[in-house]
Write a protein that binds this DNA or RNA. Structure first.
Length: 822
DNA sequence: GCCATTTCCCTTTTT
DNA sequence: GGGAAATGGC
């Protein structure tokens, strides 16, 4: 570890080891670096035992990365406890399970499980579903738990509020039911750990004493219960370092309390505050765009991010008539840049809602551009996966009635709803679990002849239980599949494609199991505890990366999941009012702007993911829940200072697109005559086969074969000025300001010397000359070594032609490619 | 108890 | 437009 690699502020943050510390870390300011160096510094320079250090993150991904990076810079780094809030709590709760009234094998219920528990409670209580929705009640309960409110607290609060009283009532029953199932939901994990620490001094002392140095990442996303948890843990030594960025707080909807970061200094007396304001990630153009958006928010801690990086390109705005064109435009723009020597890994397409991914996906597939989707439907929530896991869960925790009921008749065993209800009634009457009730078999008075079937099921499960004690997880799952003939069951009535899909998922589960087992010391652990650990990981990991992860791929994800990541080229798709900011946020027009401000922070997060180039795309029309929707451009786009953004393409030819900065009147793009839709020439000029045919091929050939190569006929960048033809929808123009929209820019940027800015030949040029010249030997990570054969001044950037030794001749923009002289 | 058809809800974001 | 849950006929 060499601390002098850090800038002054970063060093200060690393060196300030004792006492409370708040690090306000702007986007791309090297936050993770500071955290990892700080840990290494504690170990190496201060002689702190890694065992006494705790680092808490929000996502498993972040935890994994931090673990890795700490281990990289300091040998004993892997002894540091780096964990998410939730998995840390699980670990603590397993150890002290009895203290909170559970056994150490308690299950963790995901949202689906919770929903069905609630559904049963609705039935039992004859809840009027006109006024109450399961989801609504559950989120009310979740909010209560975030604020550490018990059912009793809620009841008191309710007073004569009938609705709240009902919710409090359901909350109480819900907790009872979970306890009967020996299960906790996500919020319980935090809540019960706090309760444990408050009520069991031994438990608290165990951890408070151990963790002399505590670090919390993404502090702006903590909720009240997490804040309490951290306060309790750090109470003894008071060496608490929290890192966050109030401008990147985007999880208010799930209880994040921005007060935690805003009032840190007040709560933790004598806290030091250090701001990291130098951004190492983005061009100044991108950073300024981000700043010009976020400054519209009211309550901020206040900081001014700056960068020493190059100015870079303007933010490009691509406008389309509909979401299909948008998808095509994104695909063709990516294809075009790929031809400049980029890797698919360099791109991310970010969107507000998961539903947007489908069309983009489809278009990328047609364009033969590999992609990977993050988020969406959780792998572990797919039916076949849940079924298999439910078997495993019951083996570990027979009280888990939710899982048990899921599989008792899957595959079909002739145990229907009636029998299940009868057993349940009996179990309730006797105060025993469903599984225990099953064991009573034919002695259950109301069971009738069904006991023959349930006995058989019980026998099957007991057999699995024995196997579980000695087999690996892999063997056990295989056994379950075989003995239940599950694959056959799940396959009936499906098409070959659907069956293949299920099989793929099951294979994927097997590979996850294998991964897990090879990562664990299975010899030492007995099979049951390995299984337990596996189930735990599975319930806490939302790892939703779909498909194989091999090879370079364009990343598709929601803006939320993009937090913490960075990409050279970023697309923000669907920049429309009503979609982003979401309809929810703008329909609440009262004085409470907090929803809108959260969306704006989300926009800020999105913009600051981009290192070199940012595209924003807009579709005038899109289908929302099957309905056609016309939108105006997102207000966030209008908030970007006009000199930082340019409109690049012109597939869109409507005359009112509500772009406020430009004036909402007709805007004709100077370089492209307005072309009505009925025009013969396809408006879509990305170089693909006509889209209907492409679509047809795609549909009929399945996913294995694909249509024509991406970007065929896509002209090189920067030439748009000379031949506007090439710059139809999606045309990527790297030399910003050229080619398009002198008129547009004039209107777009009234009175700001727009015409000059729009002209390549004006004084508005790149700041310095190229650091390369013909004949230079250079090296690039992807392409290896090569020789520069030509350097062209393209206005705002230099176009390099490089002859790589192995990869052939590539043209690339200097500002884009990571090239070093050798 | 099983299966096909209809209905519903969804879409803000996730540990 | 789509996927899961509820309904109703067998």
């Amino acid at each position: 570890m060499n601390i002098t690699e850090l800038n002054d502020m970063q060093q200060e943050a690393v060196r300030h080891t004792d006492g409370p510390l708040l690090i306000i870390a702007g986007a791309g300011s090297g936050k993770t670096r500071v955290l990892t160096y700080r840990i290494a510094y504690l170990i190496e320079e201060c002689g702190v035992d890694p065992y006494n250090i705790l680092a808490i993150t929000f996502t498993n991904k972040a935890a994994g990365e931090m673990k890795e990076r700490v281990a990289d810079i300091t040998p004993t780094g892997d002894h540091v406890w780096v964990s998410t809030f939730h998995s840390m709590c699980v670990r603590i709760l397993r150890r002290f399970a009895e203290s909170v009234g559970f056994t150490r094998d308690f299950a963790i219920y995901d949202t689906d499980d919770c929903k069905s528990v609630m559904k049963e409670l609705f039935k039992k209580n004859n809840v009027n579903t006109e006024y109450y929705k399961e989801r609504g009640v559950l989120s009310a309960i979740s909010a209560a738990k975030d604020e550490l409110k018990t059912p009793q607290d809620l009841k008191q609060e309710a007073q004569s509020d009938f609705k709240l009283k009902t919710i409090a009532d359901l909350y109480e029953q819900y907790q009872d039911e979970l306890k009967r199932n020996n299960a906790m939901d996500f919020d319980d994990l935090i809540f019960k750990t706090v309760m444990l620490f408050k009520e069991d001094p031994v438990a608290l002392e165990t951890y408070a004493d151990r963790f002399r140095y505590i670090m919390v990442d993404e502090y702006q996303d903590t909720n009240t219960s997490q804040f309490q948890l951290v306060s309790l843990l750090a109470g003894k030594w008071r060496n608490l370092c929290v890192v966050g960025d109030d401008d990147q707080s985007i999880y208010k909807f799930r209880g994040a309390n921005i007060e935690n970061i805003l009032s840190f200094e007040r709560v933790f007396d004598g806290a030091r505050v250090i701001k990291l304001e130098q951004n190492y990630r983005s061009t100044s153009m991108i950073l300024n765009a981000a700043n010009s958006v976020i400054k519209n928010n009211g309550r901020r801690k206040g900081k001014s991010l700056w960068t020493g990086n190059e100015e870079g390109d303007k933010v490009s705005l691509l406008m389309y008539d509909n979401a299909y064109q948008e998808g095509e435009g994104i695909a063709s723009t990516i294809a075009g840049i790929l031809r400049d020597g980029y890797s698919c890994d360099d791109f991310a397409v970010l969107y507000r809602t998961n539903a947007q991914s489908r069309i983009i996906e489809e278009k990328l597939l047609i364009a033969n551009i590999p992609y990977r989707i993050y988020g969406g439907v959780n792998f572990y929530q797919r039916r076949e996966i849940k079924d298999i896991l439910a078997y495993l869960k019951v083996l570990i925790n027979p009280s888990d009635g939710q899982s048990l009921r899921r599989i008792i008749n899957v595959p079909r065993r002739g145990i229907g709803q009636t029998s299940i209800d009868r057993v349940q009634t009996f179990a309730d009457r006797e105060g025993i679990s469903f599984y225990e009730a099953l064991k009573t078999g034919k002695d259950i008075p109301e069971i009738g002849n069904a006991y023959k079937k349930t006995d058989k099921f019980l026998e099957l499960m007991e057999g699995f239980k024995e196997a579980a004690a000695e087999e690996t997880i892999e063997e056990l799952v295989q056994r379950i599949l075989d003995e239940t003939d599950y694959i056959n069951f799940i396959s009936s009535g499906l098409t070959a494609d659907e069956i293949a899909d299920k099989q793929d998922n099951i294979d994927e589960l097997f590979s996850k199991i294998t991964d897990f087992e090879s990562g664990h010391d299975v010899q030492e652990d007995d099979p049951l505890s390995a299984l337990n650990a596996f189930l735990e990981e599975v319930s806490l990991v939302a790892d939703t990366e779909s498909g194989e992860s091999e090879g370079a791929k364009v990343s598709l994800m929601t803006l939320h999941s993009a937090k913490g990541l960075e990409f050279p080229v970023v697309f923000m798709a669907g920049m429309e009012d009503g979609l982003f900011p979401s309809y929810m946020a703008i329909s609440i027009v009262d004085e409470d702007k907090s929803e809108l401000e959260e969306e704006r922070r989300l926009c800020y997060v999105g913009i600051t993911r981009a290192k070199k180039k940012l595209f924003m795309t807009f579709a005038r029309e899109r289908l929302v829940r099957g309905e056609r929707h016309t939108s105006r451009i997102s207000r966030f786009v209008s908030e970007i200072e006009p000199s930082l953004i340019e409109r690049v393409n012109n597939s869109y030819v409507g005359d009112d697109f509500g772009f406020e900065n430009a004036g909402a009147s007709a805007i004709s793009d100077g370089s492209e005559p307005a072309s009505p839709a009925k025009e013969e020439k396809p408006r879509w000029r990305g170089g693909f086969v006509p889209k209907n045919k492409a679509k047809f091929d795609f549909m009929s050939m399945g996913s294995a074969k694909r249509t024509s190569p991406a970007g065929a006929g896509f002209k090189k960048t920067g030439e748009a000025h000379a031949s506007p033809d090439t710059a139809g929808s999606g045309g990527y123009v790297s030399t910003s300001g050229t080619g398009f929209g002198k008129d547009f820019l004039k209107e777009f940027n009234p009175g700001a010397g727009a015409s000059k800015a729009a002209d390549t030949d004006s004084s508005y040029t790149k700041p310095s000359t190229s650091k390369f010249s013909a004949g230079d030997r250079v090296s690039n990570e992807r392409f290896g070594d090569g020789t520069v054969t030509n350097v062209e001044d393209k206005g705002r950037d230099n176009l390099l032609t490089v002859e790589f030794d192995e990869m052939g001749v590539k043209k690339m923009f200097e500002g884009f490619i990571n090239l070093r002289k050798i």
